[in-house]
Amino acid sequence: MLVVPAVALFLAAAGCSSADAGSPVAVPSPGPGEAKLCGALHKALPRTLGGLERDDPRPRSELTAGWGDDAIVLRCGVPRPKEMDDPQANAVDADGVNWMLEQLDSGARFTTTYRKAYVEVTMGPRFANDATPLAALAAPVARTVPSSL
């Protein structure tokens, strides 16, 4: 008797997962205060970024967003990166929001500094020399994730 519901549940899950687009993205686990800020940021994010349409990664979460089939991925509420302890860490300012830069083999990762929740943006090689996406994210981040200074 329990076999039928289990089989039905398995088939439903298999059907859903086959329709998922994009690579899975690890969803952060922030505290309640940070999660609330991240929820506000999620609602304020642009529909297009760097000429790419918004296409949020799987699993769907208010803590993640994406544009262009994982070309740009945002995660909000990530832990403070240990690289921020390095006084020689590279940083950039985009319209009043400071971001720590980490070079990756697959592009670059930027993490906000001096904010009540850490926001991480990973961009593929296409954006290696293009700060336009960070500038476009600055206003929503500044409006929804207050400075910690």
Score class of each variant (00 low, 15 high):
Asp93Ile: 14
Ile72Glu: 00
Val73Ile: 14
Gly66Glu: 15
Gly31Pro: 08
Ala94Val: 08
Pro133Thr: 01
Glu102Arg: 14
Lys36Met: 03
Leu137Trp: 05
Leu11Val: 12
Asn90Thr: 07
Lys116Val: 06
Glu83Gln: 11
Arg143Phe: 06
Ser148Cys: 09
Asp130Ile: 07
Gly39Asp: 11
Cys76Glu: 00
Ala35Gln: 12
Ala142Gly: 07
Ser147Arg: 08
Val119Asp: 00
Ala89Lys: 12
Arg109Val: 13
Thr144Ile: 00
Pro30Met: 06
Ala13Cys: 06
Val7Ser: 08
Thr132Lys: 04
Ala135Thr: 10
Ala12Thr: 14
Met123Arg: 08
Asn129Asp: 13
Ala12Asp: 11
Val141Ser: 01
Ala94Glu: 06
Asn90Trp: 10
Thr122Arg: 13
Pro32Arg: 07
Val25Phe: 02
Asp85Ser: 14
Val121Tyr: 01
Cys76His: 07
Arg143Lys: 15
Trp99Met: 01
Ala138Leu: 01
Asp69Glu: 15
Ala138Gly: 04
Ala40Glu: 10
Val78Cys: 02
Ser17Cys: 14
Ala14Asp: 09
Pro133His: 03
Trp99Ile: 01
Gln103Pro: 03
Ile72Met: 10
Pro79Lys: 02
Asp93Ser: 14
Phe127Cys: 02
Asp69Tyr: 07
Ala71Cys: 07
Val121Pro: 03
Ser61Ala: 00
Val27Trp: 10
Ala14Leu: 13
Gly33Cys: 04
Asp55Tyr: 03
Gly22Glu: 12
Val119Arg: 04
Ala12Ser: 13
Ala91Thr: 14
Ala117Trp: 00
Ser147Leu: 07
Glu62Val: 11
Ser147Glu: 06
Ala94Thr: 04
Arg58Lys: 11
Met1Leu: 13
Thr132Ser: 04
Thr48Leu: 10
Pro140Leu: 10
His42Arg: 11
Lys82Val: 15
Asn90Cys: 08
Ala117Met: 06
Cys38Ser: 05
Ala139Phe: 01
Leu52Val: 05
Gly107Leu: 03
Asp69Ala: 13
Arg47Asp: 07
Lys82Gly: 08
Ala108Ser: 15
Arg75His: 04
Arg126Lys: 12
Pro146Ser: 01
Ala65Met: 11
Asp69Trp: 01
Leu9Ser: 11
Arg47Trp: 05
Asn129Arg: 10
Ala138Ser: 05
Thr112Lys: 02
Glu34Leu: 08
Ala14Arg: 09
Gly33Met: 06
Gly96Lys: 02
Tyr118Pro: 01
Leu74Ala: 05
Gly33Lys: 03
Ala26Cys: 02
Tyr118Asp: 10
Leu63Gly: 00
Ser17Thr: 15
Met123Ile: 12
Pro46His: 03
